[in-house]
């Protein structure tokens, strides 16, 4: 647990708008260690998406440093960032983002194509990952033939296929019903138990509660950071969530709406 997968220091990002420079993110410091399960919360416009894009190497910061597995990636070239996205990170999106024309197996194998793996390696690795998320029997199907929850499982399999150091999940349950959401969150829990670092962005407190640590953004700044290190709702369904207020909330003084 000692090694830091992610360490950001004084990270800031400004966008040029018609009204001048708009600071979306201001001086964020955060360290995420190997094996952590962390939820990033905050209302829309709080800067959490900007932060996520920076963590995901999709964007570069205006100021500050970002150390990913000890390497400062804040000012890397585009191709080097693409390689990091391919080898070190795994993405899970709200909209699943599977390629509609490809079989599930080919979808899962896609990161390996960009990693330069040969066909047999790709096929074998994709099979292993599909089996891991319990969808091995649909390997040759197209994404449109399976449910949303299943698609998200495939997306998770794709994120895992290149054996990344951490998974970045951006509102992974945003398009799913509560029951399917629980299934996906259970899968994340299992992956974390295997030692995979997970960073989860959500604005739903009950989803955030699955993580062992919650950080909260407001107006581009990190305003709270709380470690709970427990899984109080594991497998208990949505009813249980309402009886346990999310751990991060009381610190905010009730001024922030949950979304």
């Amino acid at each position: 647990m000692a090694e830091a997968v992610i360490r950001v220091a004084g990270l800031g990002k400004s966008y040029a708008t018609a009204a001048g420079l708009f600071p979306a993110l201001r001086g964020v410091d955060l360290t995420i260690k190997t094996g952590e399960y962390i939820a990033i919360m905050g209302p829309s416009g709080s800067g959490k998406s900007t932060f996520m894009n920076l963590l995901g190497c999709l964007d570069t910061p205006t100021v500050g440093d970002y150390f990913l597995t000890g390497e400062n990636v804040a000012h890397m070239e585009k191709d080097a960032l693409a390689k990091l996205r391919n080898r070190t990170l795994g993405f899970v999106f709200q909209g699943f983002n599977l390629l509609p024309r490809m079989s599930l197996q080919d979808n899962v194998a896609l990161p390996l194509v960009y990693a330069g793996a040969d066909k047999e390696t790709r096929r074998a690795a994709a099979r292993v990952m599909l089996d891991k998320v319990g969808l091995g029997q649909y390997a040759e199907s197209l994404p449109s033939r399976i449910s949303g929850g299943q698609q998200q499982r495939v997306a998770i399999a794709r994120a895992l296929v290149n054996k990344p150091r951490l998974i970045l999940a951006d509102e992974p349950t945003g398009n799913l019903d509560s029951h399917t959401s629980e299934e996906i969150m259970r899968l994340f829990g299992e992956l974390n138990a295997e030692g995979i670092t997970i960073v989860l962005v959500t604005h739903e407190p009950d989803i955030a509660a699955h993580a062992k640590r919650q950080v909260r953004f407001l107006d581009g700044e990190l305003v709270s950071d709380q470690v709970t290190d427990s899984l109080p709702f594991n497998g208990m369904g949505i009813g249980a969530v309402e009886t346990h207020p999310p751990p991060g909330l009381p610190l905010e003084g009730g001024g922030v709406p949950p979304c």
Binding site: L58, K78, A82, N86, F91, F93, N97, L99, Y114
Partner: peptide
Amino acid sequence: TREIGIRMAIGARQKD
């Protein structure tokens, strides 16, 4: 466009 975004997110370089 979206497909291109997805490909880039999972590691496609500009060259790819």
